[in-house]
């Protein structure tokens, strides 16, 4: 029993010692990751950036793609038809007959030796011209008070701020997309439109109980908010109330025009829209 105890104690001591050395909480060190420079660009910023400028350079007609290599080598004449061994022999012969050109090394050394000689002569020949005389410092201009620039002086905004229009925001303006406008239909406009339509809309009787009953109408507006053309159903649920629903929606649109809550400056946004007429969404059921 004694031997066992001694061995066991010694073993535990050894393990503990080892654990003391090796067991320690290493902090998690993450390898540094290359950061991707990402700017968050809001939709508004993006459309402003893509807004076209009238004076943008027109895209050049696509150039002919340059060949990847500058000069295409002529195909080598087929010399290799001769057996290689014979060729080599010839070479050796010529090498022994005519000594090759002297190696270039001595030349370099000679050049190096020459160089220091040349420099001083040059320096002697034309000494450095005197530095051009500086023009006498002009008297500082008195800051002139310009009453027109008061607004600019008072402007405490960051001079590096982003300009508002596309041409200044984007240093390389393009002709842009047609709809590159920051203006979007705001939520209040949409809500107003929705409220107005649901006021006018009288859905077909008995349709309230049908789940998932909807129809999507494509509506073209005029600039004054009136409907330009008869709305066309684009999508609808398969139901016996479908045609009646589409008819009632059409009627609602025509009855309530013009929709004055749609602002003419956003005309691009709403001149051609699709409106979903959903019984439960529109009527809050």
């Amino acid at each position: 029993m004694q031997a066992g105890s001694i061995i066991s104690t010694a073993g535990h001591a050894a393990v503990l010692l080892y654990a003391l050395v090796s067991f320690s909480g290493h902090s998690f060190e993450m390898p540094p990751q290359d950061s991707l420079p990402v700017d968050l660009v809001s939709l508004k910023d993006f459309s402003q950036m893509t807004k076209g400028a009238k004076d943008a350079p027109k895209p050049k007609p696509a150039e002919k793609p340059k060949p990847l290599v500058e000069k295409i080598d002529q195909p080598k004449p087929a010399e290799n038809t001769k057996p290689k061994v014979a060729e080599k022999k010839e070479e050796i012969k010529t090498a022994s007959a005519a000594p090759p050109e002297p190696p270039t090394k001595p030349d370099k050394i000679a050049e190096k030796l020459k160089k220091p000689d040349e420099k001083p002569t040059e320096a002697k020949a034309d000494p450095k011209p005197l530095p051009p005389r500086k023009p006498p410092p002009q008297p500082k201009k008195q800051r002139q008070f310009d009453p027109d620039k008061i607004a600019a002086l008072l402007d405490k905004r960051d001079p590096q701020r982003n300009a508002a229009t596309g041409a200044e925001l984007n240093d390389k303006p393009t002709l842009g997309s047609v709809k590159g406008m920051a203006a979007m239909l705001s939520q209040s406009e949409l809500d107003a439109l929705r409220a107005r339509i649901s006021q006018c809309w009288s859905p077909p009787v008995g349709a309230e109980d049908t789940p998932n009953l909807f129809v999507v109408l494509r509506v073209l507006f005029k600039r004054d908010g009136s409907v330009a053309r008869e709305p066309v159903p684009v999508e609808g649920s398969a139901s016996k109330f479908g045609p009646a629903l589409a008819e009632s929606a059409k009627r609602a649109l025509l009855r309530c025009q013009p929709f004055t809550m749609l602002k003419p400056e956003h005309y691009d946004q709403w001149k051609d829209i699709e409106i979903k007429f959903d019984l439960h969404e529109m009527l809050g059921g």
Partner: peptide
């Protein structure tokens, strides 16, 4: 528990022998 472990191993060695 450490003492228990020592004791257990002592017994184990002893019994094995």
């Amino acid at each position: 528990l450490l003492v228990c472990s020592v004791w257990v191993w002592a017994i184990a060695i002893d019994k094995t022998v």
